[in-house]
Design a protein around this nucleic acid. Structure first.
Lengths: 228, 228
DNA sequence: CTCAGTTTGTTCTCCCGTTCACAAACTCTT
DNA sequence: AAGAGTTTGTGAACGGGAGAACAAACTGAG
């Protein structure tokens, strides 16, 4: 196993870099669609909305895929990033909670096009069972374990009300899911080794509200100073 | 104006802290609903899913609202954080793009309960106009300026397809909106002074996928070492 | 009043991430 | 072939946030 560090790249890509790789990937796909075959770090950085130095440093964690004096081959870099993230393969996903948000997620085309396949929609409400959303049957939540095992699901999405979310998460973990994307407005507690990412709409709005208020206060002070 | 720094708190709350304040606020609301009147930093930190030292440091940016040897008064701290974020007042919001996601957002109760009021739903598609979603009429996108001015809207939500998002953002900025929550999978460019927060579902999934892949690779290596 | 026990607010240190700046490496022209 | 012009990859400096640890400040018992 001593050969691993020399053969493989060092496997400690910083979290901040991991979070940006999908952005670079999307930018590269857009460039490729425009027929662009080569780009500099400056161009790609602009397309991704980041600093070019940061982009180069991020890419350097993956390896040395550019050519000095030339730039990056769009297709090649696109493949390398996709491979690094793992989106060259197919990821089965279950969504629990088929309310408004669950519907929106099930119908979201961005999942399928990035290699994520919704294999099941689960809901505790019997009235929703056998409804078909985005071509997938809604099944009882009790079938979670069976579906996870059958399809080898590693990623679960929680789109339930806040009160149900922790129970759902517990069941997911028991079933063998190791990564959870949580849209419910609650803090989940999970064992070590399970990743949780949360998307919280009202928190995002509150952060914006804080900044609006700040800007308003700053303007007020400015006006007072002007009149003084 | 020299009295301002002594009277006011220092107005440079770190961004990381601002992002956590809404989480603390939610935890406090939950505690209050349970009839709990006082809590220690340790208890609140657990409820919010953070380290207690970090919580105390975060709160110290707002002022000194606790009592040593006792803890925090839940109601009082709740109010202070709400005031600091600005959610004691009412924030009018416009949502542009009434697809699946737009519907889900319009119906999301977490907005209204946090002081965010959806004053308009806008869509470019004439077929959707005069549809009523969550009690609000869907109006033509062209009415954006008028609505922003009429209601004093400072926050806009973009839930359109990626291709339309930049145009929508430009129009929002022209109309006077200074904060944008973007759900479209694209990088927005806006002038200085305009805040953009993005929520990108497929990026979140890709980040999870990376970690799943990493864990799988680590397990593989472990198995090899065990068999050696 | 005093002392033991508790909990906050803050200082200090460490670490991660960002950015600058430049050497290394490539292309292209002459 | 050599030199001018580009662009990458990375070493080093810098800034901000996380966490440990402790002094300050409160409560309550005796």
């Amino acid at each position: 196993m001593s050969a691993r560090t020399s053969n493989d790249h060092a496997r400690d890509i910083p979290e901040a870099t991991v979070a940006r790789l999908p952005v670079y990937l999307r930018a590269l796909i857009t460039l490729a669609e425009q027929g662009i075959e080569t780009c500099s770090s400056e161009e790609l950085a602009t397309a991704a909305g980041v600093n070019s130095a940061k982009l180069r440093k991020d890419l350097s964690y993956l390896g040395s895929y550019g050519t000095r004096g030339v730039g990056y081959d769009v297709e090649y870099l696109r493949y390398q990033i996709a491979r690094e993230i793992g989106v060259t393969q197919d990821w089965p996903v279950v969504i629990v909670g088929i309310g408004n948000l669950g519907h929106a997620l099930a119908n979201y085309s961005g999942f399928r096009s990035r290699g994520f396949r919704v294999v099941a929609l689960l809901d505790a409400d019997p009235d929703r069972h056998d409804e078909v959303v985005a071509g997938v049957d809604v099944r009882p939540f009790s079938e979670l374990e069976a579906i996870v095992v059958e399809h080898g699901v590693a990623i679960g999405v929680i789109a339930t009300p806040a009160l149900a979310a922790q129970d759902v998460a517990d069941r997911m973990v028991d079933a063998g899911i190791t990564s959870i994307l949580n849209f419910a407005p609650t803090v989940l507690s999970v064992p070590d080794g399970v990743d949780v990412r949360k998307v919280d709409l009202s928190i995002e709005l509150q952060i914006l509200a804080y900044h609006v208020q700040r800007k308003a206060a700053a303007n007020l002070v400015q006006a007072e100073e002007d009149s003084a």
